[in-house]
Amino acid sequence: MSNAHQRPLRILLAKLGMDTHTVGITIIAHALREAGMEVIFTGLKQTPEMVAAAAIQEDVDVVGISTLSAGHTRNLPKLARLLREAGAGDKLLLAGGVIPEEDRPLLEEAGVDRTFTMGSDTRDIVAYLNEWWVQQLAADA
């Protein structure tokens, strides 16, 4: 058994709160699958507690939250805190969707590693994740 044998990046994709717009998250999920990643889908109307619990059970490397109906300045910092408290603060936390520029500093301060706004090219997201994953694998080797 070699370490590099089969080690795809695992990412959990979720939507928090009452936000039911699913087109964006579906497109992202397919793009990541095409890029050879394992995408765990948890469904809609998730609470930060549910996302944190699922991320730990699934031992994902990345948590991606799609947000299109506000609430992100409350939900995302809470999710980041729950992950840290559960000993899973090393997971990369990404947010995408409708995120006003002025909210970014607050989110970054709270532990969101990167935000992608509306109109982001899925290829950029894939490239960003691939680059991050290569670094992780190198650091772990």
């Binding site: 699958r33 990643m37 995408v39 889908f41």
Partner: peptide, 11 residues
């Protein structure tokens, strides 16, 4: 083909 997967049973 890609080795990727969408794992949706948790939904």
């Amino acid at each position: 083909f890609t080795g990727g997967a969408i794992l949706g049973d948790r939904v």
